[in-house]
Nucleic acid binder design. Sequence first.
DNA 1: CCAAGCTGATTGACGTGTCAATTATGCCCG
DNA 2: CGGGCATAATTGACACGTCAATCAGCTTGG
Lengths: 151, 151
Amino acid sequence: MATRRFPTREELRVWRDFIETGELVRSAMAARLQKDGLSPGDYTVLLALSEAPGERLRSSELATAVGWERSRLSHHLGRMEKRGLIRREECLTDNRGAEAVLAPAGRAIFQQVNRPHLRDIREIFVDALTPAQLEAAGEIMAALREHLTRE
Amino acid sequence: MATRRFPTREELRVWRDFIETGELVRSAMAARLQKDGLSPGDYTVLLALSEAPGERLRSSELATAVGWERSRLSHHLGRMEKRGLIRREECLTDNRGAEAVLAPAGRAIFQQVNRPHLRDIREIFVDALTPAQLEAAGEIMAALREHLTRE
DNA sequence: CCAAGCTGATTGACGTGTCAATTATGCCCG
DNA sequence: CGGGCATAATTGACACGTCAATCAGCTTGG
């Protein structure tokens, strides 16, 4: 079969569903986190720092750990620092470097939020799908990623 | 089997893959549209207006057509108007109302961008998946949506 | 050694999205 | 008819993300 130039109506429908449902799911999760005053980004950063040795990471390591651009992380850490969730310290081994350190308030809110958040993942995502669908979802995401990075 | 309290490691992996892959795919598409100077939001609005009778819609109809909150639409239309992509006119039948009208520049850019965009959907999304995966994706999105609105 | 270039991180400008407040008009009931 | 409530839309404040520019410190080849 020759490569079709344009998607069919049905393919287009699935594409739009993919985009819109993704937005719906993310915003549903964001709303739940927001009740405890955290954004999804906040949670991501707090999780990474919580798991890091000494609850601290170089900015660049943190950036690759969460898959963000440096600049995005820098802005986000600035906001989190202002709220007292993290501290910034200079790096001893490289004077250019900066380290982000989990602050007490950050540790406290993370511990308070983590288990409810895991339950929310189950309620919003896992419980919505059959085991077969969940497996298929994993494969679909892998295929999309693979295809994207292959270009 | 009793309802598990927390997701398993594998379920968590799929959840994170779902979120991250969604972001990857959306940003890949955004990058392609950006080459023609359009954001995904711009495209959505231009598409809706192009298909509307008279290439015009009441703000509230446009909002429900694209599934946005009023306020978001208002901000976005403001930016698009500043760039000359749309015009705003008063509504004759309801003095509170406003209509968004496709401007010549908006029509031109949309016609220029639409076919390449459809090709991009095929390249980024459709071509990455087998027909079975595409069908499964549709069902998974439907299940997630259904589950969300059911709460 | 030291200038040139690379790397780590921050900053500013700007587009985008949400929430709450505001403005203006329509509509209904007493 | 007119006070009160609903509705249409906008606005302002702020969080978030990207891009390009910047700055400081490391590193290396001539």
